[in-house]
Design a protein around this nucleic acid. Structure first.
Length: 423
DNA sequence: TCTGGGGTCCTAGGACCC
DNA sequence: TCTGGGGTCCTAGGACCC
């Protein structure tokens, strides 16, 4: 360790491998008749929701990811709308990962369809960067039948931005020293981390292109945008400049939060529906916690109303949990305390965070009861693995645990005309 | 246009402690 | 009695990414 820290900082060679129109391409593997057509993945044309991915054919009509499905249908009426299949994407993503790890040991998946490779010092094995990239590109196609684009640079940022410029199905190497020249003519929006809001601020200052940032100077950027402005100045030069980008490729990061949320097909103020949804979301979160062997101290409720105003309300527990019932109890309490009966809800969400090692079980009696719950949940998890997500619900097992629960009000949530009523 | 679902990181204020 | 300063935890909201 002492030896490596004394070495001079070597220029790195980073690959960013980004799958082309990933979800669409995977759907084409399952249904080849989709090939060459305008395809929109994410849901049906009349549904609530947004586009997850659009084929290049559909993009010609202005369709892009995050666009509302109904808008996409208007822009491109002849498009074929396909529901998403997360399991298929996960499976293909694993194949992609296998190809990458067989190629180089330092691989980091940044999301389901993109990865960074640190290729520093692999010239003897794979040849110079462009040759190595083409080899990987070809191998990816052979083994997954999927197209990707590869950006190469001395930083994650340059690799990322250049893979976007290489699309579709291309390879692009930014030779060290050429970073600023490469970035200068690009829109500021091409810089990862510059979104809609930051773009607007920059436009107001007369800055459109990355090259324009240099005019403003580092100190003024810092003055205007704080820590972020300073990082932005670095990014304009192609540096990773702090934050996540500045981490070593392949360093494993721990999960910080696990959440599930649901947008209703139609806004609702129906207590039964809201309660049942809260329970289902709590179960899904609990299940993921147990899978990941995590215990959460903080439970957060997310509530989005008809008019899209959104609030989050959190509560931290004295003892971390991974049990559906405890998660639901917290979520339900937060809901009760923050929802005005009758107000129409668009979305509900449950999130678990502040992960800790499991707390010591001091109380033996409570410990025994908890252990029985855990055993029951483990059995339910196994059933769900076997027969599918909808086969088991906690509802039956929870009967009697919530005093206000009735047949009309299965989740024990407050409703119209029930306020103040004692059980 | 009428806005999903799963995440990460940052900021900022208040409580509480020393 | 008028009132400081730092550190940490908690909560809420928002920008951003795929």
């Amino acid at each position: 360790m002492a030896v490596t820290s004394q070495l001079p900082a070597l220029a790195r060679t980073i690959f960013h491998v980004d799958m082309d129109a990933f979800f669409v391409s995977v759907e084409e593997l399952y249904d080849p008749s989709l090939k060459g057509k305008a395809v929109v993945v994410g849901g049906q044309r009349n549904e609530r929701g947004v586009v997850s991915a659009a084929s290049y054919e559909a993009r010609k009509f202005g369709v892009h990811s995050a666009l509302p499905l109904r808008t996409a249908a208007k822009l491109c009426p002849h498009a074929i709308f396909v529901d998403g299949h997360p399991e298929r994407y996960r499976e293909c993503s694993e194949k992609v990962y296998a190809v990458l790890t067989a190629f180089s040991p330092q691989v980091e998946m940044a999301s389901i369809d993109e990865a960074y490779l640190d290729m520093t010092g692999t010239a003897r094995l794979h040849g110079p960067p462009l040759k190595a990239a083409h080899k990987l590109h070809q191998r990816m196609k052979e083994e997954t039948q999927l197209n990707c684009s590869i950006g190469i640079g001395a930083s994650r940022l340059i690799a990322k931005v250049s893979s976007a410029q290489a699309k579709p199905n291309g390879v692009l190497w930014i030779v060290p020293g050429e970073e600023s020249n490469f970035l200068a003519p690009l829109d500021v929006r091409e810089i990862p981390g510059v979104g809609k809001v930051m773009e607007r601020h920059l436009h107001e200052l007369g800055i459109q292109k990355v090259g324009d940032l240099a005019r403003l100077g580092e100190s003024e950027l810092e003055e205007r945008f704080g820590k972020w402005g300073l990082a932005l100045a670095g990014k304009a030069r192609g540096e990773d400049a702090g934050g996540w980008f500045d981490t070593e490729v392949g360093a494993d990061t721990e999960t910080k939060s696990i959440s599930h949320e649901h947008t209703f097909n139609e806004d609702t103020s129906d207590v039964n529906q809201l309660g049942a949804t809260l329970m289902r979301l709590s179960e899904m979160v609990g299940r993921r916690l147990r899978e990941a062997k995590l215990h959460a101290r903080t439970i957060q409720l997310k509530l989005r109303y008809k008019d899209f105003t959104t609030i989050t309300r959190a509560h931290s527990l004295p003892v971390p949990t991974q049990l559906d019932g405890e998660i639901f109890e917290q979520a339900r309490t937060l809901f009760r305390n923050n929802w005005k009966p009758g107000r129409e809800v668009r979305l509900l969400g449950v999130q678990a965070s502040s992960f800790e090692a499991q707390a010591e079980q001091i109380n033996l009696l409570e410990g025994g009861r908890q252990q029985r719950w855990k055993d029951a949940l483990a059995a339910a998890d196994r059933l769900r693995d076997k027969f599918g997500e909808s086969s088991v619900t906690l509802a039956a097992g929870m009967r009697g645990r919530f005093r206000e629960r009735t047949h009309e009000n299965p989740a024990g949530l407050p409703g119209k005309g029930r306020a103040g009523k004692k059980p």
